[in-house]
């Protein structure tokens, strides 16, 4: 695969050549691209080789010469359970979903419950907008086959790869979970918000707890899924209503602990990422970009869109997703 920041003309030429691509960029540029074998999503934040940046005049293009066929589908929230019906043997699947949409909520809440969901690599991201535009401009995804932009459905690309290539999906989470002696949080209901939580087994008003204890809510709640540390980020704490909202759902019965603080965000990324990454597909979370003040700071050779959620089988927060195509 090849990752490049391309001008509109160069991206259009690439599409016209028949290339299979995923594209991230400003909505105005995506709307001018020709039809072809691509899917896209809106983003104006990117991680580049020289650091994080807001880019509106170029498109982040990943081209897959390894793809032998690409089947593009548009799935509404009700159709997401059928995502694995498009899985092709020897393939993998990309999914892009607009932030704040019903498809976003449904995927987050029940995506992993769907039959066959885990049977092949599934990666993607949640499209976003400039932070100044939240509430005014809807994030979009684009079905390149028709050129149509959508703000409430997922676009999916099922890619069949050349024989001998194995897609390897992983996540980079720079956080570590608090010590086993740190307070544990269990929610009695799954959802994007909560008023109460069981803290070490005792029902507690969550907003009051966070405020009274000076909890740094830039740190995510973390759960251990079979050894994979999965973050849920706090979106808001409302003292009057007692409501706490999250960027991904907290799940019933899962034990969460707040992450340990980081000394230096950008350095933590650089240390975890090492020297690799130039030839991998990746996306990084807008919260890492913001809280880590990554604009202008290099985090290694991984480049890609900065997104409103990352998908590696499930919706992730404050995480970098990466995909490598490895020779078997």
């Amino acid at each position: 695969m090849k990752n490049e920041l391309l001008s509109l003309d160069d991206a259009a030429a690439r599409i016209t050549s028949g290339a299979v691509m995923t594209i991230a960029g400003d909505e105005a540029l995506l709307a001018q691209l020709p039809k072809g074998n691509w899917i896209g999503g809106t983003s104006v934040y990117f991680v580049t080789e020289t650091g994080g940046a807001v880019i509106r005049d170029r498109l982040y293009c990943t081209t897959f010469p390894e793809g032998t066929t690409a089947d593009i589908r548009v799935l509404g929230a009700d159709d997401l359970p059928r995502i694995s019906e498009g899985y092709a043997e020897g393939g993998m699947t990309f999914v892009l979903i607009p932030a704040f949409s019903e498809a976003h909520s449904v995927f987050a809440m029940s995506g992993t419950d769907h039959p066959g969901f885990f049977n092949q690599p599934l990666v993607g991201w949640i499209s976003g907008v400039h932070l100044d535009d939240i509430g005014h401009v809807a994030p979009k995804v684009v079905d390149g086959l028709t050129g149509q932009a959508h703000d409430n459905v997922a676009v999916v690309m099922h890619l069949v790869l050349e024989q001998g290539l194995t897609p390897q999906v992983d996540i980079v989470n720079i956080f570590s979970q608090g010590e086993p002696t740190a307070p544990s949080f269990r929610f009695t209901q799954s959802g994007f918000s909560a008023r109460t939580v069981l803290i070490d087994g005792v029902e507690t008003p969550l907003a009051a707890y966070l405020l009274d204890n000076g909890i740094d809510t830039r740190l995510p709640l973390m759960a251990n899924y079979g050894g994979a540390l999965i973050n849920v980020s706090v979106q808001s704490v409302e003292p009057d209503s007692g409501m706490v909202t999250f960027y991904a759902p907290v799940m019933e019965g899962v034990e969460y602990r707040f992450a340990k603080p980081l000394d230096n965000y950008a350095r933590a990324f650089a240390q975890q990422l090492g020297e690799g990454g130039a030839d991998q597909y990746s996306c990084n979370c807008i919260l890492n970009y913001l809280y880590g003040e990554l604009e202008g700071k290099s985090t290694g050779k991984f480049t890609g869109p900065v997104t409103f959620g990352e998908i590696a089988y499930m919706l992730l927060n404050q995480t970098m997703m990466r995909l490598e195509l490895k020779a078997a």
């Binding site: 992993t112 885990f118 690599p121 390897q168 999906v169 992983d170 996540i171 759960a223 251990n224 899924y225 079979g226 050894g227 994979a228 999965i230 799940m251 019965g253 899962v254 590696a312 089988y313 499930m314």
Partner: peptide, 21 residues
């Protein structure tokens, strides 16, 4: 935990454990 397993195996197992719990 299958710490060295592929991500899908880890998440799948983690999810099933939660559901059974």
């Amino acid at each position: 935990n299958p710490d060295k397993a592929q991500l899908s195996t880890r998440i799948m197992l983690g999810r099933l454990r939660i559901e059974v719990r």
